[in-house]
Every structure is written in C-alpha cells, then in structure tokens.
Amino acid sequence: MSLPSEVQSWIGQTRYEEETEFPVERGYVWTTCSSVENGNPLFWDDDVAAELTAGPIAPPTMISVWFRPHLWAPGRTKQVQPLQVHFDLKETLDLPEAVMTDNEIIFYDPVRPGDRLKTRQILHSVSEPKTTKLGTGRFWVIEVQYVNQKDQLVAKEMYTGFGYKRGA
C-alpha cells in the first residue's frame, strides 16, 4: 500500500521547531532522581557538581522531559502533543494505537538548570504495512534534535514507532 503523498512530503523535512515551555529546573531533576532512587552526587551535591561539571547539570536521560508540554495552559484550546510528528502519522495513516519499539539517545553538551532548549523533529522513514502480535500497521523513524540557548547541540534522539490497528 503506497504512502499518502502528504506523509511522503514529511520525510526529511524539519518540522515543529519549538522552544520548551519552561527553563530546565532542578525540581524536576530531583523528582526524577527520586523516582528511580538515583543517588549520583552530581545531581544532589553542589560541590561535586562544581568540581566535575562546573556547576549543576540535569541527568542526560531527562532530555525528552524538557519538551513535554503542560497538559493544560491558559488560552490553549487544543492539547499539544510531544513528538507531534508521531501523532500526525497516527492520524493521517488512520492508525489509532501506537507503541515505541526503539529509542536511541546521543548526548552532547550537558543540560543545565536555566537552559531554554529548542527542539525540531525530522521524519526519516515510514515502512510498508506490517503485521505484528499487536495488529497491522507501519513502523516509522523520527529524529528529534535538541539545542540550548547558545545553539549548542545537547542531544539527538531517534525513535522507532509502530502505529497499528488492533487485530480482530
């Protein structure tokens, strides 16, 4: 089954260039570390952070946290989705369910409290229809790039998603 031309046109295109809704902040760093019982002193001890990383940083794996939008915000009439390309694909390809099967993150300059990150999303590929134990649908690969307010690359993420319709 061929891809709709609209979806075809998204491949390789940089879309949804956005700034995060709030600066990186330590409250979320501590909540995240607490949620996984991460006692790394880099995140809890300012003296260690000063010595090793020239001040506090956020755990690298928190990178996607900073661009997840608030569930509600004043004046917003439509819920904004993180990884909007993924949701665009679900909607346009009429695949109501989706899971992520692979996720690769590459870390560059550390993210620091106060940083204002920017993101952009690039659709790399969409597969032919496939059937798995979940149902029938398509796999897709999306890259998300993250830079800080100095335009320094802080991370890249590659997601492989599978959008599908559940089997009868």
Binding site: N38, G39, N40, P41, L42, V48, L52, P60, T61, V99, M100, T101, D102, N103, E104, I105, I106, F107
Partner: peptide, 16 residues
C-alpha cells in the same frame, strides 16, 4: 551506580 559520577553517558539505544 557502577561508574560513579565521573562516568559520562554518550549513547543509549533501547529496544522495548
């Protein structure tokens, strides 16, 4: 936990 705080992540690839 294994490396200590000087260990610096470069890349992680997850397969769910």
């Amino acid at each position: 936990d294994w490396t200590g705080p000087r260990g610096r992540l470069g890349r992680m690839k997850f397969r769910m």
